[in-house]
C-alpha cells in the first residue's frame, strides 16, 4: 500500500472517502488461520454471528467460511463453535 506524502494528507489527517476501511487488509495481521472440518460442521452459522470482523459468510454449499482478506485469526469462531468443527492452524503449517 502506498502511503501519502504529508503534503497530500487531508486537512487534519481527515478521511474524506467514507467506508475506505474496507480496503484495509486486516488479514495481514493473522498468525493462525481457522480450518473447518466439514464432517463436524452442522452449518449453524454461530461462527459468523461471533466473528468480530464480520468476515464469515455462507457459501453455495451452506458452509460458513471466513474471507481471509479480513480474517485476523483471532480464533473466536473456533472457541464458539458448538461442534468443535473449527481448528486454528499456524500460518504456513
Amino acid at each position: 500500500m502506498q502511503y501519502p506524502a504529508w503534503e497530500d494528507l487531508e486537512l487534519g489527517a481527515a478521511i474524506t472517502t467514507p467506508g475506505n476501511a474496507s480496503n484495509l487488509k486486516t488479514g495481514d495481521w493473522r498468525s493462525s488461520v481457522p480450518v473447518l472440518d466439514e464432517d463436524k460442521c452442522v452449518k449453524c452459522g454461530l461462527c459468523a454471528v461471533y466473528c468480530p470482523e464480520f468476515c464469515i459468510a455462507e457459501d453455495e454449499e451452506g458452509f460458513y467460511r471466513p474471507d481471509l482478506y479480513y480474517c485476523k485469526g483471532c480464533g473466536i469462531c473456533a472457541v464458539e463453535c458448538p461442534k468443535e468443527a473449527i481448528k486454528m492452524q499456524r500460518e504456513g503449517e
Binding site: 494528507l9 486537512l11 487534519g12 489527517a13 481527515a14 478521511i15
Partner: peptide, 28 residues
C-alpha cells in the same frame, strides 16, 4: 474548510497509524 456534514461525510480524528502519524504532525 472542512466540516461534519451528513451530505458530505468525512471522518475527523481517525487513527494515525505509524505510517501516517509523522506526516500528520508534519502538516500541523
Amino acid at each position: 474548510a472542512m466540516k461534519l456534514d451528513p451530505a458530505n461525510p468525512v471522518t475527523m480524528g481517525p487513527v494515525g497509524v505509524p505510517e501516517i502519524y509523522t506526516e500528520a504532525k508534519k502538516q500541523c
